[in-house]
Design a protein around this nucleic acid. Structure first.
Lengths: 190, 190
DNA sequence: TGCATTTACCTAAACCCTTTAGGCAAATGC
DNA sequence: GCATTTGCCTAAAGGGTTTAGGTAAATGCA
């Protein structure tokens, strides 16, 4: 009886692939066991439970997003940086829909603190260095950008913008134009 | 043996309440049967399956959102209308988190076409009548507003803005200020 | 009012996913 | 080469989904 060579990391990685293929909420311990041609109970020596498995997939996704974001921002500033980071999120969601969903999986506070979530937030802050905002307006802008990126990408993934003109790519480009203009002319606080 | 008086509508309504209490993805046919003190199989005379039940809850949520939105927009224009509609979504999500999730449940195309989804889209278009945008820029703006509303509300629900200053309410107000300014000064297409 | 039909809920059963307990065999370490 | 650790196994309990087929309550019609 040859061993399958399971580890928590291999399971999480395979789980991430499975998520992209069948959807994050279809990632089950059972499906993963089938994929490794192993009995279900065997996985429980490596991951605590289903939640633990999903959490590990979420951590992979956050890590990958932050890595891609950091690479995209290197050497860019202003609108160039804004577009690059925005495209990182959108492209990632399109290439890896399951992982993208995973990145939004609710983590317990300590796990979240140890995750790449913070790095992702810093990336948006880095983009804003190219614009002239000081606290607390910068934080408001961070939240706005996060909302637009996540909102657009998830509405697009849900099919919200298909089957109607203009095409989604055109809206995305114009929305980034608009956000750039807004950040350059951020309205003064009342 | 007194009958429980089940109908698809009563089940969907109870399902919506259950969703707000325990989360949309915890809404199961079994849990609903327990709530009506009835055997699980009995529900299958009224709803086709679990997906059908969730779909009905989604339709209720879309309907309620559109009703609230229409009421909020009556007699308002410009920034006043923008704020009113935005608050409808945010308040609904906070009052009815389960239903709000349900409103994002993936519907099959025919069901979606017959839903209040279209009415919701028209509400955003109505807000934009207070600004000076023509097609296709208006559609881009509709998509931007949809993204911000949905993105902000879902990040807020996920706890993204709690435990850090400034508080979420302040960001929401400033973001609406910013969107209003942006719509009044929409950048010209290249 | 009495009977036939329809409707509402039931039991039973199959199937899948999760999770724990306890066992044996393979790999590892000295 | 043997003891220990590790990896995967079988077994079993518990819960959700769904279908098939049955019985009793409600309804409709003479």
């Amino acid at each position: 009886m040859v061993r399958a060579g399971l580890t928590a990391e291999r399971l999480a990685r395979a789980g991430a692939e499975l998520a992209d293929e069948v959807g994050f909420d279809q990632v089950t311990v059972s499906a993963l066991a089938r994929r490794f041609d192993v009995k279900v109970a065997s996985l429980y020596s490596h991951v605590k439970n289903s939640h633990d498995l999903r959490t590990r997939i979420a951590l992979i996704a956050l890590e990958e997003l932050a890595d891609r974001g950091a690479a995209a921002l290197a050497g860019r500033a202003g609108k160039d940086a804004l577009t690059a980071l925005a495209d990182v999120y959108r492209d990632y969601a399109r290439e890896h829909p399951g992982r993208y969903d995973a990145a939004r999986y609710r983590l317990d506070p300590e796990t979240a603190a140890a995750s790449a979530g913070g790095r992702n937030a810093q990336l948006t802050r880095a983009v804003l260095r190219g614009y002239d905002l000081t606290e607390p307006e910068q934080t408001h802008a961070v939240r706005l950008l996060g909302s637009v990126f996540h909102g657009y990408v998830s509405l697009e993934a849900a099919g919200g913008f298909s089957h109607s003109a203009p095409d989604s790519q055109a809206s995305w480009a114009r929305i980034l134009d608009a956000l750039d203009a807004l950040l350059r002319n951020w309205p003064p606080a009342a």
